[in-house]
């Protein structure tokens, strides 16, 4: 499948930007996304190819703009939703609960 992820040779994306200290993670949410990814893929809830394709199916503008680990999170969410393991609506309901301190 072609798509926005097929970036090789694309012009106009600007210079390669490097960070000063290159932290492995840029905040605790990135740590949690990475850990959830490893735990769910090792747990066999999906495989590498499914995960990669789920990222490639992100909406193109979002693919380019979203922080890297947000792409991962959205891909995991989509795969678990599609497989009926955890529905997106349940995640969003839990988010509301957490936001109001009810969970």
């Amino acid at each position: 499948m072609n798509g926005i992820h097929d970036l090789g040779g694309m012009d106009g994306l600007g210079p390669v930007l490097r960070e000063a200290n290159e932290p492995v993670f840029h905040g605790d949410w990135e740590r949690r996304v990475f850990a959830v990814f490893i735990a769910t893929i090792v747990g066999g809830l999906f495989n590498d190819d499914e995960f990669r394709q789920a990222r490639e199916r992100l909406e193109p503008a979002r693919y380019l703009k979203a922080p890297y680990y947000e792409q991962w999170l959205l891909a995991i969410q989509r795969l678990l939703d599609e497989k009926g393991i955890i529905k997106k609506a349940d995640i969003e309901a839990r988010m509301k609960k957490l936001a109001t301190g009810a969970a």
């Binding site: 905040g27 949410w29 996304v33 850990a35 735990a39 955890i86 988010m95």
Partner: peptide
């Protein structure tokens, strides 16, 4: 939103016994 979303996902995964919180750390 992202931080909240991953927190929600993690808590549901743990609740369903699909991931071990100690393994995550």
């Amino acid at each position: 939103d992202v931080a909240l979303r991953v927190k929600a996902l993690e808590s549901l995964l743990v609740e369903k016994g699909l991931v071990d919180p100690a393994a995550l750390d």
